[in-house]
C-alpha cells in the first residue's frame, strides 16, 4: 500500500495519567495505521485504555493526562505539534466526533440546528441562510423526521436516538476526513441501537468516510468495521481484519473473549468465563498484561511484554506464542 492511502497513523503512543497514587500509562505504546475509507474498531473492556487512546488522538485529554511519547499523524500532519487553537480547528473541520451520551455533548441553551450551523459557519465560511439549508439537509440524511422543525428544537426535546442522530449530523457537517465514534450506541436500547448502526453503515458506504469506532461490544464491532484492534491493559493485543477476528482469532485474550460472551447461538448453559479480574489502571501486571488470566501463560509472559508479531494475512498479534526470538520478528510499526 502506498503512503498516500494512510489517513491516520499512530506511532508508539504512550499516554500517562496522574492519579492519587502516582503516574500510570493508560496507553502503553500503541502503533497503528488507518487507511482512507476504512473503519477501524477498537475493542476493550473498562480500563483497557481505549477511550484514553481516542482522546489522545483527539487532543481532548483531561488535565491529569498527557502524551509522553509517540506521534499522531493525520494526513501526514503531526498533530502533536499543534497548538491548542490549531487542534481545535482541526477537530472542527477534519475530525468529526460522536460520543456515548449525546445529551451532554450539546449545549442545552441552543437549538440543535444552531449548534450544527455554528460549526458550518465557523469552519466552512457559510452564511446563516446557507448554513440553515445545509443543516436541514444533513438532518434529513441522518434520518430525522421533520428536519425543519427539529432545527429549532432544543436538545432535551429529542429522544436519545434522535439526539444521537443529530450528533452524527453535527459530526458530518464540515465533511470531515475521519469520524471518531466512542461507544456511540452504548446508552441506547437495542432497537434504537440497530437504527443507529444501520445509519452509520449507510453513511460510511455513501460518503466513504474513515471511521475509528471505539466499543466494548464485539457484536456492535462486527456490524460496522473492516478491521479490529483488541486492546487490554493499555496495549494492543491483536490487530486483525474483522473476519479473522471472529473466525481465526490469534491472541489467547481474543479467543477467550469470544468464548465468554453469551450469544443467541451458544450451545449449553455454561459460559466459558475468563478467570480473574480486569486489571485496573493502577494495578496492571508486569510483562504481558493478560498473563495472570491467560491459560497458556508461561514464565516469560510475566517478565517481558511480547513484541508485535506479524502473521500471515497481516494479522498483528502481541503474544509470545507467536514470537520466536530467533526468527524475524520484533516491533513492526509499518504494517
Amino acid at each position: 500500500m502506498s503512503e498516500q492511502e494512510i489517513l491516520l497513523s499512530v506511532r508508539n503512543l504512550r499516554t500517562l495519567i496522574k492519579t492519587a497514587n502516582g503516574t500510570f500509562s493508560a496507553v502503553d505504546g500503541v502503533n497503528f495505521d488507518l487507511e482512507k475509507g476504512k473503519a477501524l474498531g477498537i475493542v476493550g473492556e473498562s480500563g483497557s485504555g481505549k477511550t484514553m487512546l481516542s482522546m489522545s488522538i483527539l487532543g481532548l485529554l483531561p488535565q491529569t493526562a498527557r502524551i509522553s511519547e509517540g506521534e499522531v499523524f493525520l494526513n501526514g500532519e503531526d498533530l502533536r505539534t499543534l497548538s491548542k487553537k490549531e487542534y481545535k480547528k482541526i477537530r472542527g473541520k477534519k475530525i468529526g466526533t460522536i460520543f456515548q451520551e449525546p445529551l451532554t455533548s450539546f449545549d442545552p441553551l441552543y437549538t440543535i440546528g444552531d449548534q450544527i450551523a455554528e460549526s458550518l459557519k465557523h469552519h466552512c465560511g457559510l452564511k446563516r441562510s446557507e448554513a440553515r439549508i445545509k443543516v436541514i439537509e444533513l438532518l434529513e440524511t441522518v434520518g430525522i423526521p421533520r428536519p425543519e422543525s427539529v432545527y429549532d428544537e432544543f436538545p432535551f426535546q429529542l429522544s436519545g436516538g434522535m439526539r444521537q442522530r443529530a450528533m452524527i449530523a453535527m459530526a458530518l457537517a464540515p465533511s470531515p476526513e475521519i469520524i471518531i465514534a466512542d461507544e456511540p450506541t452504548t446508552a441506547l436500547d437495542v432497537t434504537i441501537q440497530a437504527q443507529i448502526l444501520e445509519l452509520l453503515k449507510d453513511l460510511q458506504k455513501e460518503r466513504n468516510v474513515t471511521v475509528l469506532f471505539v466499543s466494548h461490544d464485539l457484536g456492535v464491532i462486527a456490524e460496522i468495521v473492516d478491521e479490529v484492534m483488541v486492546v487490554y491493559g493499555g496495549q494492543v493485543m491483536e490487530h486483525t481484519d474483522v473476519n479473522n477476528l471472529f473466525y481465526n482469532p490469534a491472541h489467547p485474550y481474543t479467543k477467550a473473549l469470544l468464548k465468554a460472551r453469551p450469544t443467541l447461538t451458544t450451545e449449553g448453559k455454561r459460559l466459558r468465563a475468563i478467570a480473574g479480574q480486569v486489571p485496573s489502571l493502577e494495578a496492571r501486571p508486569s510483562g504481558c498484561p493478560f498473563h495472570p488470566r491467560c491459560e497458556q501463560a508461561t514464565e516469560k509472559c510475566s517478565k517481558k511484554a511480547p513484541p508485535m508479531t506479524v502473521l500471515e494475512n497481516s494479522i498483528r498479534v502481541a503474544c509470545w506464542l507467536y514470537c520466536h526470538e530467533n526468527e524475524k520478528s520484533g516491533e513492526q510499526p509499518n504494517v
Binding site: 465468554a260 453469551p262 466459558r272 475468563i274 479480574q277 480486569v278
Partner: peptide, 9 residues
Amino acid sequence: DVSIQAQIL
C-alpha cells in the same frame, strides 16, 4: 465487563 459477565452468570 464482558469477561466478568460470564463468571457472574
